[in-house]
């Protein structure tokens, strides 16, 4: 039986496309307030894990529990209330082209029944979410008018506007220049530490995970500062490493850096 504070639990999950497994026999659990960084090379199954986590893909075998409920064979409509408790940033942001920025960020507030946001509060919450990512001036713009980094920040605002219990980030820094990538990571750490939401991040860049593991947001100075080993922000953070669809490592930053496994150490060194 899953734990009551279990946010997400995979039990021997396999997802295949056309007979080829994208992820195979993957098991892990995330509890409330914890964070995970899922690392792996391209095509190792990271995004498949994220999509399976919220029921966008169905496992061919194994079971997936979201907020303690088995969603493996749950009907899509029945999953909507659970999904309302999850915010998700897609790899290319996946903002709706035909809607402006305000409408994009307002979308989960207006369309997720479980959020139950009064209509007269929508604008204020959208503004607040966009101000948090320093894009309060873009309400009327369309996604095509923004740069890649700005679109990613709008995606972060949309993922967090409902203040979900868990936030999932799919390659938030992919394709961005180092400065913008660091800004995006700073926002993710800020969201994690201000709202204390369970955070799951998929990335190919070890340094993104290292930022999450080494830094915390300081409200007084409004900047990232180095975290100490006892800090609650980083206490529940673990790294998962995927290799060809299999989960080959689960551990802390220190354990990962000390790993003798050639694949993992190469991964760490390369970055």
């Amino acid at each position: 039986m899953p734990n009551t504070d279990s946010i997400l639990r995979f039990e021997k999950v396999t997802v295949a496309f056309g007979g080829d497994p994208a992820i195979e026999d993957v098991s892990f659990e995330i509890r409330a307030g914890e964070s995970r960084v899922i690392l792996g090379a391209a095509g190792s199954g990271k995004t498949v894990i994220l999509k399976t986590s919220v029921g966008l893909l169905r496992p061919d075998s194994g079971r997936v529990f979201l907020f303690g409920q088995d969603i493996t064979e749950m009907k899509e409509q029945d999953q909507f209330d659970l999904r309302a408790r999850v915010g998700m940033l897609f790899q290319e942001s996946a903002l709706f082209d035909s809607l402006n920025i305000e409408e994009n960020v307002a979308y989960p507030l207006l369309n997720q029944k479980a959020v139950n946001c009064p209509e007269d509060q929508v604008h204020a919450r959208v503004e607040e979410a966009l101000t948090f990512v320093e894009l309060g001036h873009t309400l009327e713009k369309f996604p095509s008018e923004l740069s890649g980094g700005m679109r990613r920040r709008v995606g972060i605002a949309r993922a967090n506007v409902t203040e979900p219990a868990m936030v999932i980030y799919d390659s938030p820094t992919a394709g961005l220049d180092p400065i913008t990538a660091n800004n995006i990571m700073a926002l993710i750490v800020k969201e994690r530490d201000v709202r204390h939401a369970t955070t799951v991040m998929v990335t190919q860049r070890f340094q993104d995970g290292a930022i999450m593991a080494r830094y915390k947001y300081d409200r007084a100075t409004e900047t990232l500062v180095a975290a100490t080993p006892g800090d609650a922000s980083i206490a529940g953070l673990k790294f998962l490493v995927m290799k060809q669809g299999r989960l080959v490592f689960e551990g802390t930053l220190a354990e990962m850096e000390q790993s003798k496994d050639p694949y993992i150490s190469k991964f760490v060194l390369r970055n």
Binding site: R83, A84, A94, D97, Y107, N111, K113
Partner: peptide, 18 residues
Amino acid sequence: GSMKVTEQIDAMRALGTD
């Protein structure tokens, strides 16, 4: 089709819309 390949359909589903 454009919405599908840019994951907008998945985003819609993830945001609680059929």
